[in-house]
């Protein structure tokens, strides 16, 4: 069991998302950086889809009420356990009473916005509609359907003496599978239904200029600012189904990328869709940073998803090999 010590604005319990509920108007939720969450789980020998805590605001402090193995992935936030510095993306074993502190995200080799605290056995909250993710809009899932508060306690699925050694880590995928244009994190985008409805100059600007992540960006959507995107003629549309990754363009011409807490329908024209394999890159882009978009194809998008799968599979293989050798010795 862990106890939240900080007034942790917007920290939520998330797993890889709630699939299959769009027909009932239930969005997917889930980790903004599913790769970091899955990696933290693999490090601990959990199922990739186990729930963890997504932390977007720092500092963040928890106290371990019992011995428990854990890993902090995502943004490197200079974590300490009882003041002792920890490495990012690495396993540790906390003893009862120890305090984990996550500080401000560091610049370093990868500037990221969100950290994930994973616990041995996963964060044990009730499964609602096949997921433990917090659905903020519907106020269910996670812990009581809300963000964590000071004094909250969460149970780990497999606390106790760590079965895995400490100090086992992974090189983050941002370094293994980098994607940048002119020094900005980049995401591959498939043109969407209304793409041809924008002027050639606007389409060109979308691909060739940097887009700033505005402060009005959160788990629901990333509002970007840059050159206003102009339609050839005004488009009036009925509400229709949308999914995380869809890039809508409201009348002001400043795009909004739907993120994990997006509602399942909307009526703005769609310029493109950030491919599933790259959505974590945007989910980790800090407010105020700039991102770029790269035009891609269906086949490339599928191949990119394969690369993500391969990274996870290779992580699992190496970690199991390590575990096997340790056990046999």
């Amino acid at each position: 069991m862990i106890e939240i010590l900080s007034n942790s604005a917007l920290a939520t319990v998330q797993d890889l998302g709630r699939e299959g509920g769009l027909r009932w108007g239930v969005g997917t939720s889930g980790a903004m950086d599913p790769l970091a969450l899955a990696a933290g789980n693999l490090l601990l020998g959990n199922e990739e889809s186990a729930a963890g805590i997504e932390i977007p605001v720092f500092p963040f402090r928890v106290r371990f009420a019992e011995d428990c193995a854990f890993a902090v992935t995502g943004a490197d936030c200079a974590a300490t356990l009882d003041e002792r510095p920890l490495m990012p993306w690495s396993t540790y074993a906390a003893r009862a009473g120890q305090v984990l502190n996550l500080g401000m995200p560091q610049g370093g080799a990868w500037r990221a916005a969100r950290a994930y605290l994973c616990l041995a056995g996963g964060v044990d909250v009730p499964c609602v509609l096949n997921s433990r993710s917090t659905q903020l809009r519907g106020a269910f899932g996670g812990l009581e359907g809300r963000a964590l508060r000071k004094g909250d306690t969460l149970r780990a699925g497999a606390p106790g003496h760590a079965t895995r050694a400490t100090g086992i880590g992974l090189v983050p995928p941002a370094l293994v599978l980098p994607l940048q244009v002119d020094g900005c994190p980049a995401m591959r985008v498939l043109p969407a239904a209304e793409y041809e409805g924008y002027t050639a100059a606007s389409r060109e600007a979308f691909w060739t200029t940097a887009w700033k992540v505005t402060p009005q960006s959160d788990r629901y959507g990333y509002r970007l600012s840059g050159e206003a995107l102009e339609p050839i003629a005004a488009m009036e549309m009925r509400s229709h189904g949308i999914v995380p990754g869809v890039i809508q363009v409201p009348p002001g011409g400043q795009p909004i990328v739907q993120m994990r807490d997006a509602q399942p329908s909307g009526g703005y024209p769609k310029l493109g869709t950030v491919i599933e394999a790259d959505l974590w890159r945007l989910g980790q882009a800090p407010i105020g940073s700039r991102v770029r978009f790269i035009q891609t194809t269906w086949d490339e998008a599928v191949a990119a998803q394969g690369e993500i799968r391969a990274w996870l599979d290779e992580s699992r293989r190496l970690l199991e090999l390590r575990q096997g050798l340790r056990y046999a010795a």
Binding site: S90, T166, I168, G169, E314, L318
Partner: peptide, 17 residues
């Protein structure tokens, strides 16, 4: 117990305490 170095095997990192 403090890590002195890391050994990298593929994309895995092992601390040398």
């Amino acid at each position: 117990g403090e890590p002195l170095a890391l050994l990298q095997i593929g994309q895995m990192l092992l601390a040398v305490p």
